[in-house]
Design a binder for these strands. Structure first.
Lengths: 349, 349
DNA sequence: TTGTATGCGTTATCAA
DNA sequence: TTGATAACGCATACAA
């Protein structure tokens, strides 16, 4: 069989009409067979299926989406998919969505709220059924306005947006991990602990800072204000400059322990340390970082971290979107963090 | 203005019809204004734009795509977006596509050719205009058949598919980097160099192995067959087991230098080494890895690598898709690799 | 059980 | 220059 002339003319996709013609039935019948409609005779079913096989037909999701009003696609909006953190989440989300027949449309905002907003509108115009997102600035009015105008299934990735009760969220319990980190360091004798954190317009950094302070209070230790460095963004550049600034402090006020607020910050921090040559991590300086990455595990000395399952966060986010699309109410899932003790934090001498 | 009743009834999206009604003109006129058609009076233009603003209308890309026959979306198909290598490429591709108004639909195959094929079909049915892909197995017949049936703009990411002359490609010049790596090691006195590579059904690994052998020939050194380990996949697990096997070799045939064929392999390799406690990289054992990552730079000692600009590869891939969609002929771009000498490879003593 | 007709939102063709 | 209408591919309400 040469499969009719559908294949010749400019390689037009074979449509449901072609199948109907080939089978000698109405398009609606073809549609019913393809959608497992109850009222189809076995005979009709076979004729259509034969035609489908003969033409190698596959449903055009564009037409189907337009008609059904659902695209079976979900947007994924983060500042940078190249960041291991978000890459892991994207992976988790995609694998879960793929199983359900959904596709993931990925967008980077590069930390720019304006691009966040543009992407939200674009994805909305693409009619994605849902949106998994970690906005760059929880307080940005444009972003918030764009989000409230949506009627899509929304899942926040470690973000907190007042005024969006319709949104589900998957959060990490940063507080517990940060508390454990501070306790660990204090237990080792440290009193001057520095925190290299990110903007407080983002939930993770806010929660970590709060926990950092609370842990100090609990241990009755005063937080040194100039040891709390809040970067405009948790980048390697910030990690490096902040570390350099801390190292330049007079010995009597210089921190004896550093807490890095993210994997990119850690990179910059280590660069600064390696450049300076001293102090040496695990000897003259103790170090704890947030989020476990191969670099932390395989560094010498191995770096103690506050870990969380980032891939799982993505998977849960996907499940939350799907359950929302199936009619469930929005809800928030909080995943644990845990302190993984290695040897970068040592007793103060 | 209350913006008509469009907003009330179940939050239906405002369509071009609503705009036409609001402006008191025909939908075709609205469409013309929105698409900057030459023949529109300034007066009409203003009336429509006012209505658009009043209703806060935005074009529905679903209807537009169906009618135009183009979705302004591109598929991105790799084995694992969580792998830094692919995450970087995705980032580069997305940022370039975003500027052109295109969206990126990401898919993971987990190294399974069957999932490669399913995703290709799915993306095709979604009518993506183009496809950027690094298939899991260049020799898989299903994958190849699915690809030849497409009439989309195709861009291969460091892959070589005979029988697909219609595809553009962005390649890395692994040969040059690998040659330099072997030369570097041989120059340091090494004669027993091990290669931990990936499946030869993938271009990067094939080209690296060829260059590895060629460099040996050029230096008139025999390649030790049992020092060439080809994993079923370039994973951390393979890196670890292969390294363990090499370390178990009798001292007189044990390699004095290792070349890791990827960032995941490096992770497993280092784990095995750290577990064994000896030999020590940069002292008793020399090491070179493929693809630069923070772990390589910040490891102690810093690891010599064959680097390439992975983000740029993604950007170039996006440009190749776009130029193809604009009617240009398919072409292949090869990007350089270069040896970044650090201190993990030392003179044999 | 099957076929006919309509509409999803948009754009392009055609006539006015 | 503008408006009416058909068509993109599909799924459904309704008629037969």
């Amino acid at each position: 069989m040469d499969g009719s002339r559908a294949a010749v003319a400019g390689r037009r996709r074979v449509s449901i009409k072609d199948v109907a013609r080939q089978a000698g039935v109405a398009v609606s019948s073809v549609s019913r067979v393809l959608n497992d409609h109850p009222n189809v005779s076995a005979q009709m079913r076979q004729r259509v299926l034969d035609a489908v096989a003969a033409l190698d037909y596959e449903r055009d999701l564009l037409g189907s989406s337009l008609r059904r009003g659902t695209t079976r696609s979900v947007g994924f909006l983060v500042s940078d998919v190249a960041n291991t953190l978000f890459a892991d989440m994207a992976k988790g989300a995609e694998s879960e969505l793929q199983q359900a027949g959904y596709s993931l449309v990925v967008t980077n905002s590069d930390g720019d709220p304006a691009r966040d907003e543009r992407s939200i509108r674009l994805l909305s115009n693409r009619r994605v059924d849902g949106l998994i997102l970690a906005v760059s600035d929880e307080t940005d009015p444009q972003t918030n306005r764009a989000l409230t105008q949506l009627d899509n299934a929304l899942v926040l990735l470690d973000r907190e947006l007042r005024g969006l009760p319709r949104a589900s969220a998957v959060l990490a319990d940063h507080a517990t991990g940060m508390s454990a980190a501070v306790d660990h360091l204090v237990g080792l004798g440290h009193r001057r602990i520095a925190l290299l954190g990110g903007p407080l317009t983002l939930r993770p950094h806010r929660e970590r800072l709060d926990a950092f302070k609370a842990a100090h209070r609990r241990r009755k230790i005063a937080v040194q204000p100039d040891l709390v460095l809040i970067g405009p963004t948790v980048s390697a550049e910030f990690g490096r400059s902040a570390t350099a600034r801390l190292l330049a402090l007079p010995a009597d006020v210089r921190p004896t322990a550093l807490i890095s607020g993210g994997n990119l910050v850690l990179i910059g921090l280590l660069r600064a340390l390696h450049e300076a040559g001293a102090p040496v991590v695990g000897q003259d300086l103790s170090l704890v970082s947030c989020d476990d990455v191969p670099l932390a595990e395989l560094h010498y000395p191995p770096i103690t971290v506050v870990a969380r399952d980032t891939v799982e966060m993505g998977r849960v986010a996907a499940r939350l979107v799907l359950e929302r699309l199936h009619g469930a109410n929005p809800r928030t899932v909080t995943l644990p963090t845990q302190l993984v003790v290695r040897s970068s934090a040592v007793a103060l001498r």
